[in-house]
Design a protein around this nucleic acid. Structure first.
Length: 194
DNA sequence: AACGGGATTACCT
DNA sequence: GGTAATCCCGTTT
């Protein structure tokens, strides 16, 4: 069966964690014991530490973003535009900020919407809410965790991140990773291979 | 205490 | 192409 990725997976440089999350499976299981919902990650973005002018960590460990500075392997969610929730997985070692925004995934179970295209729709589709902020993704009983199921040989591409034009030179850095050509990817689906 | 904007989406022309 | 919806949070007063 699927077991959560260990904390060591997340305790690495954020761009590497982001790249390696492609193809992994998000598992959402509720406390009421219904069937779990699974979705394969196909698009992510790396948000680095205090230097990264696109990152919520750029202002330091404020109440909202402090979790990005803490131990890896936890869920960081936030509300955006008053409407949508975005989900991130905290990365890099304890004390250094980093998180990976999950932008799109492909559902693996019958009866679920086929594509979760875009970070807001992904959270809505998987039932991830603000209240889930801080969950430990490495605990098997967690309502949300991430697992490896043996998928390999993904065709990975990268590009600048979406929606961060305010970030000056950081807006241009290729910190978005996606499965090239995959129909669930939001925004550009083909750029340069890695 | 008040203000302004956002790691988005859907719907309009 | 443009913009409304809607609220948390960082900043300023």
């Amino acid at each position: 069966m699927l077991t959560p990725l260990p904390r060591s997976f997340y305790a690495r440089p954020t761009d590497r964690v982001a790249r390696d999350l492609l193809g992994k499976v998000i598992v959402r299981q509720d406390q009421s014991g219904g069937r779990p919902r699974r979705a394969r990650i196909v698009e992510v973005e790396a948000y680095l530490g205090e230097r990264d002018q696109a990152s919520h960590a750029r202002r330091g460990p404020t109440p909202r973003a402090a979790i990005m500075f803490g131990p890896p392997g936890h869920l960081y969610c936030y509300l955006i535009y008053g409407i949508y929730v975005c989900a991130n997985f905290v990365s890099h070692v304890d004390g250094v900020a980093g998180a990976v925004l999950i932008r799109a995934a492909a559902c693996l179970d019958e009866g679920d919407p086929k594509e979760l295209r875009g970070p807001g729709k992904l959270c809505r589709g998987m039932g991830i809410e603000l209240a889930h902020k801080g969950l430990d993704l490495t605990v098997p009983a967690s309502p949300v965790y991430v697992a490896e199921d043996g998928v390999r040989r993904l065709k990975v591409a990268r590009s600048p991140r979406i929606g961060v034009d305010y970030a000056g030179a950081w807006a241009a850095r290729p910190l978005r990773f996606f499965v090239s050509g995959h129909p669930s990817v939001s925004g550009p689906r083909v750029v340069r291979a890695v």
